[in-house]
Nucleic acid binder design. Structure first.
Lengths: 143, 143
DNA sequence: GCTATTACTTGACAAAGTCAAGTGTATTAC
DNA sequence: GTAATACACTTGACTTTGTCAAGTAATAGC
């Protein structure tokens, strides 16, 4: 394996870290931190969501997550109910307000991505996506 | 522009955020935070480096950067000298120790990337890189 | 039923990042 | 030339974000 190859992959990683950083700046204007946004995303996109399931999706300290969820409850964004099957688990459901806030965040993320690619032709946009998905397939295969 | 396209790009972004997150965990074992590592990288890879130049490479609070540099000086990783041309600027140079520490960090990053792709064939590795570089070209063009 | 494990919570703390005012140097406008 | 302005960086005060470990309550394994 050449160092050249690795260096260039790392260069891409720095580049893409910046891209993600730019996109994440939207959170500065929102009510949410980046991590809170990610948590809300999982809550709104996971069947029978629980803290346990969220922690399977990405690395986050248990206590920190607990506090974020607590904060969401206080803001009226989610409801927690004890799971009927297993009393240690809490089932987490977004409230109507939670769904609305998530939809807002979602739209603003969509707008940003749209801006990011608006100057590309349709062909180029399709090419971009197909390359992304190929990268993902390769990296997942390599795990 | 279809929503489907945007959704799938966002899905890639979440995926790649996790990849970068995994790679960044190496910093937990090192003497540096992620941001410090990035700053040290720029110092070791920029001609006539200054705080101003670092801030052109990525978004970082001026005061925060100043403190990181101060910390590096105290650790003996860098030397700051007033620029002869413009007394407002400080020229930042890594010391021998700074270069060594950076080399360590660098090697451990290289190892991680090597691990990440070791199960791919040479052809697949080359394909991965070429797709990354095409993505970068497209996104830079679109700016 | 006793022990161990699991899911989550809480307290204390540290790290990371932000904001605004402050210092010294350079540039611009007259 | 000098007064006003801009620039590069520093410092103080602060908030946000994240971590660690001990604690509570429920379940699982024997």
């Amino acid at each position: 394996m050449t160092l050249e190859l690795i260096d260039r992959i790392r260069s891409f990683n720095r580049f893409y870290t910046n891209i993600i950083g730019l996109l994440d700046q939207q959170y500065l204007d929102s009510l949410f931190s980046l991590t809170e946004g990610r948590v809300l995303y999982e809550i709104c996109n996971t069947e029978d969501c629980s803290a346990k399931k969220i922690r399977k999706r990405f690395v986050i300290d248990e206590g920190y997550l607990s506090r974020i969820l607590d904060h969401f409850v206080k803001q009226g964004l989610i409801k927690k109910t004890r799971s009927p099957n297993d009393g240690r688990l809490w089932t987490i459901m977004p409230t109507e307000k939670g769904k609305r806030e998530f939809a807002k965040l979602n739209e603003s993320s969509n707008r940003l991505i749209a801006q990011m690619i608006e100057r590309l032709s349709e062909e180029e946009q399709a090419e971009l996506l197909s390359k992304m998905e190929r990268i993902r397939a390769l990296l997942e295969k390599a795990r």
